[in-house]
Design a protein around this nucleic acid. Structure first.
Lengths: 231, 231, 231, 231
DNA sequence: TATGAATGAGGTTTCATTCAT
DNA sequence: TATGAATGAAACCTCATTCAT
């Protein structure tokens, strides 16, 4: 018994339909050809790697664990990624791109600006706070300085777009007279700051003092729109 | 690499006292005895370790580099710290405690609440943004989940106190009629959120889009206090 | 820098023909599949480790030397054993088990009890004295107190069985009238004591005063069986 | 370890009269001068080192622990011993010499040979079994091969003398007709073998199966002297 | 003589990466 | 394409020894 049998026994099936729509259609597509199999494996690796990187950070994550969690051999990872570092960099892209894609498919703006922002923020909080996507934000904050390409990508794809979108909304609100503070358009960061804080708070301090992010956001919007809103 | 020998630049400090009855020690190099030397070394290690941990994160930091940067041998570190992990945990305490101590030495509250907050925040930004203390915040965000004791300590010593202090100020502002949004007292996090965002922004995105934290804070305070203030 | 740079200086030459039956059988062993190769490596590590542990004791043995002697990389050892300590513990089992297995395949007891014991002891001495198995006994004596599990295992598998077997023989001898000293059955240790002493003597004092273990044993049996036997 | 120990060459002068009568006269010599203090420290180091070496073996013993146990600073050890290896070698001498000295001051042989041996053996067992002296035997068995000078010294001072003394006794017994087995004089080891076994048994297996060494020895002597003795 | 902080070589162990199958 | 045994550089940590006090 010199070796731990491990086996972990959680092949890709385990988290099957849980996250993205990609993997584990094995029963309905038994004839899965080679390309499909490869794509499934790659997806499994991506899933597993995200989980591990989020849980441990880049340096402390072992490829061995990723392989086990993905249900592939260690060497297989190198068929899909050049090395650990570029895997991490690609990963962030792979995970972020569909999120951005979905967000940029904005619903047609209807209602007041406050309603728009409130709806958007509410969805954001629901989909991010306490989820893996929230941890991804924390991961980027953590590893950004050591992975400038990751920080750059994140800024380009997420932050700058988000800031621009917020600015557009703020300007609309100002034009419509919903927002009085005109300088807010220069700092859309203020709009999202509480949401970011909520995400980080959740990871670090939730067990000491739970934070009702939705309610906090409502108070914040009251500050900006200067009125009370009964939710 | 990151090495920076430093050498601590200890002057020769001709140890006197015990033997030579003719001291002849320079008045500016006071009795560098063994305990003092040890304390200096420990301080050098703390400095070096903070730099390395901030630059690389916990897992990627090599004790070898810390030793080189501190100008001591590898083994010397183990005279002061049990192992890498407890060194990290102690480090956060060592660096945070004096900061907290200074902040809790509150200046006598004079002027309007807005002036109080503005002064405090301005000092905070000046002393934190872009400094190692700001990076420490990012480090805690990054490593917190893997070092619960660090997150706990930070919450207990910094976050909970800061929240309490902010809440007191907010309630004072509400009582004095400076702040209209009464619910703000329930979420002092809103007050500090832009400052936190500024700290993180500085680490990650400053080179893409510099952020005038002081000005942003002024806008934020305008939202809260509902008036324009000429700085 | 208190010790010489070591140099080890025991390249593959050391174990030359001694243990590796492994290589260069390319034409007759085409079926050397991965599992077989792994088993061979494991066996090589076991061999090398036994040699090193016997030569230096547990604490002074370097895994580096074991690896070199076994012709594998240092990391390979950790594919087969959890760490140095459990390697040592397993090793003792690995080496002892087949010996015990062979001994418990008792030959059919024929002849007088003295003949039985004499044959058994003679074989024992031939197979143990001056061989690595003898050194293993010394190793267990040396490390036993620091490895209770090893001492326990050795007691359970070897000592208690050996004692029981000796006791059975003694009782048979008493019943048949060959042995007069009835109390001997209470202390079968007396029967084997000279053999143990011979093993230890061989390791420590042979170069000062060689000991004819076979002859000594004959004298000892004369004491027990009370008669002269012409060998 | 890679260094050959040896270095032997310690002439008897080294420890000349230095160590036997030394220790602990602190209460009767309150004016303990420097030489006395040094001798006391040295004795404390010897005591502590023996305990540690016996408990852990040579390689696993830390000078730090010896120093702590002896109540001196680590550096002090180097004022008394050249290094760890020669300390170990000297230690064995220091501890063994007075024992040998006492044993060689034999009481005048009176009574039957069996009585002589019985008395001697009884004292031996009482003073050795389960005491640190017994562990010293095990220590020498353990470290002997790596410290030839220790094994040599032990053989010269203890083993060869003991064998010679036993042989003389056996020959006396044969001459007096107490011992019938004349060949026993060629293997005095047989006489002491059970005692040695008892010593080792005590260290390793006592908790599994306690051994009444005194009683075992009586049975053994019955074998040799061919008679029953009522104790 | 005594101290103990400091050293740094060397030990054990880990893990990203390779490569024969 | 996939595997996973094997590698070996490099990390953490220990501890015999030195030396300034």
């Amino acid at each position: 018994m010199t070796k731990k049998p491990t086996k972990t026994a959680l092949p890709s099936a385990t988290r099957a339909g849980a996250k993205d729509p990609i993997p584990a259609r094995s029963e309905e597509a038994p004839a899965s050809n080679r390309a499909t199999r490869a794509a499934e494996r790659r997806a499994a690796i991506v899933e597993a790697a995200m989980d591990e990187f989020i849980a441990r950070g880049f340096a402390a994550t072992r490829l061995d664990d990723i392989a086990k969690r993905a249900g592939v051999a260690k060497g297989t990872i190198y068929l899909h990624f050049k090395d650990k570092e570029s895997m991490f960099e690609e990963l962030v892209r792979i995970v972020i791109v569909p999120v951005v894609a979905r967000l940029t498919t904005l619903p047609p703006p209807t209602g007041t600006v406050r309603e728009l922002i409130e709806t958007f923020a509410s969805n954001f909080l629901k989909e991010v706070i306490g989820t893996r996507r929230g941890d991804l934000v924390r991961l980027i904050v953590a590893e950004g300085p050591r992975f400038p390409s990751v920080a750059d990508f994140y800024y380009r794809e997420v932050v700058s777009r988000g800031i621009a979108a917020m600015r557009a909304l703020i300007e609309l609100g100002i034009a419509r007279g919903e927002i009085r503070e005109k300088d807010l358009a220069r700092y859309p960061q203020i709009l999202v700051a509480p949401a970011m804080i909520a995400v980080i708070w959740q990871s670090l301090f939730a067990r000491h003092a739970p934070l009702d992010a939705q309610d906090m956001l409502r108070v914040h919007l009251d500050l900006i729109f200067g009125e009370r809103r009964t939710t």
